[in-house]
Design a protein around this nucleic acid. Structure first.
Lengths: 231, 231
DNA sequence: CAAATAGTGTCTTTAAGACACTATTTA
DNA sequence: TAAATAGTGTCTTAAAGACACTATTTG
C-alpha cells in the first residue's frame, strides 16, 4: 500500500468537424467516405488525430478544415467531447468535435486531398437509412442543434454568407437552418433593429429584373439584442 | 514515401469539476488544495485522471464527485475541453471539464477523502488576488457563465435546491447566481406561469414567525417556456 | 409597364417590470 | 396583534407576428 505502480491510461485524441453550409436554400454538411478501417467506405465527418504532442486541438481542427475541405478563415467553435470507450476499435479514442460554418463555396476540387469529400443535405445525412461512422450521427445532430440555437441570440447567421450579402440571403439562412418560413417585412425590421448585426456595405447588387438589392456585411456585434426568435 | 512510421501522439485525459452550490445566499465553488506537484499547495478544482482505459469520461467525473466531494445524484453536465499544450508540466494533458450543481449540504467531513476540500465564494475564487492551478480560473469562469445562462431557459435552478423547496428559496438561487434583486411578486407569477417548472409537494414549512411557506419540487419540464429573463 | 426589393404603418397578443393591494396562517 | 408568505390587479413599455400598403429602381 506504500508505493503504487498505478499510472493513468494513455489515450488517442482526435478532432471531428461538423462543417455546415447553405446550398440551394438547404443546409448541407461536408461528409467524407472513409478510406481506411474501421468503417472503410462508410460516410463520416472529416477529422483526424492530433499530429503530434504539441499541436493545439483547435489548430488540428483548422488543419483538417484546410486539408479535407480546403476551407480557411471560416467560423469555428468547439462543440463537445465524444469519448465513449469502444467507439473506436483501434483503442481508446477521445474526439473533440468542432462546429464550422462556411459560406457557399465551389465544390471540392477533384485531385486534391478534399476530392473524396462531398456536401450532403443534412436531412439526408440524418435520414435513418444513412449510416455514419462511429458516433458521428450524434455529433452531427448536436452540431445542427447548436447552430439552430445560436442563430437566435448571436450573429452566427452571417457566417453562412459571403463577405457581403443581401437581407433576403440572410433570411434564407434562417429559413434553411430553422426549417421555417419568415415574413420578409418583419424580418427586415428585426435585423435592422438589432443594432450592430449588419451594416450597409458597397452599392447594390443587380437582380434579373427588378430593383437591385442592398448589400450588407457582418456588423461588429456578436450577441443580438433583441434576439431573433424562432417561431 | 511508401510506409510511414507516423503514429498519433498519446495523451493523458483528466476531468475537472466546477461544483457550484449556494451557501448564505452566495454562490460557492468547491476547491481543493493540491497535495502533489505541480502546483503543490495551490487551490484547484477537484479532478483527476481517468482511472483506466475503459472508464467512461462522465463516470470519472462522477467518481471524483464522490471521492473528492462526497456528492452523489447531483446535476452534472459537460462543460468543455481544455487542452492547451503546456498547461501541465507532466506532459500533454487534456482535461474535460464538467459542471456540477449541488444543493446545500453539510460541510466535507474531516477524516474522509473530501477533508481537504472546501466551499469557497465564487467571488473570492475569481478575485485577482486568488491563484488557481492550471487554467482553472478560466474553467471556473466558463462554468459560472454556463450556469448563469442556463438559469434563463432551463430548470437548472432547481438543482441548487433540496428535494423540496419554497418559492423564495428558488428566488434566492436566481438572485445569487445572477447577482441581482428580483421582485418577489413578479417572480412568483413567472415561475408559476412556466408550466411544468415546479409542482406543489407536501404540506407547508414552518417559518420562525409568520405564514408557513408552500413547498414545491422540480417539475417534469427542463426547458422553460416562457424563459426567465435576466434583468 | 412588370418585377423585385425597400421600407412604413398599424393592429393584436404576449410578456416584462414596477408597484399597490388583499388574503392567509402562524407565534 | 405583528410577521411572513401567498396571491391578485393594474399600468406601462417592449416586442412578436400578421398583413396592407407605398416607394424605388431596374429591364
Amino acid at each position: 500500500m506504500a508505493d503504487d505502480p498505478w499510472q493513468p491510461p494513455l489515450i488517442l485524441l482526435a478532432v471531428d468537424l461538423v462543417i455546415l453550409t447553405l446550398r440551394d436554400a438547404h443546409l448541407h454538411v461536408l461528409l467524407v467516405e472513409r478510406g481506411v478501417d474501421p468503417f472503410l467506405g462508410v460516410l463520416a465527418l472529416p477529422g483526424g488525430f492530433l499530429r503530434d504532442e504539441h499541436e493545439h486541438i483547435e489548430a488540428a481542427a483548422r488543419r483538417e478544415l484546410a486539408e479535407e475541405a480546403g476551407l480557411y478563415d471560416v467560423h469555428l467553435e468547439s462543440l463537445g467531447v465524444y469519448g465513449e470507450p469502444g467507439r473506436d476499435p483501434r483503442g481508446r479514442v477521445v474526439s473533440v468535435a468542432y462546429l464550422a460554418i462556411a459560406p457557399r463555396l465551389p465544390d471540392p476540387v477533384a485531385g486534391t486531398d478534399a476530392a473524396h469529400a462531398s456536401w450532403t443535405p443534412v436531412d439526408d445525412a440524418l435520414a435513418h437509412a444513412t449510416k455514419l461512422a462511429f458516433d458521428h450521427r450524434r455529433i452531427l445532430t448536436d452540431g445542427v442543434e447548436r447552430a439552430r440555437g445560436k442563430l437566435e441570440y448571436t450573429a452566427l447567421a452571417t457566417a453562412f454568407c459571403a463577405e457581403t450579402f443581401t437581407i433576403s440571403e440572410l433570411q434564407q439562412v434562417y429559413e434553411a437552418v430553422w426549417g421555417v418560413q419568415l415574413d420578409p417585412r418583419n424580418f427586415y425590421r428585426k435585423v435592422q433593429g438589432a443594432r450592430g448585426f449588419i451594416v450597409a456595405d458597397g452599392p447594390m447588387r443587380k437582380t434579373p429584373n427588378g430593383r437591385p438589392a442592398r448589400l450588407f456585411k457582418a456588423g461588429p456585434v456578436h450577441e443580438l439584442n433583441p434576439p431573433m426568435t424562432r417561431p
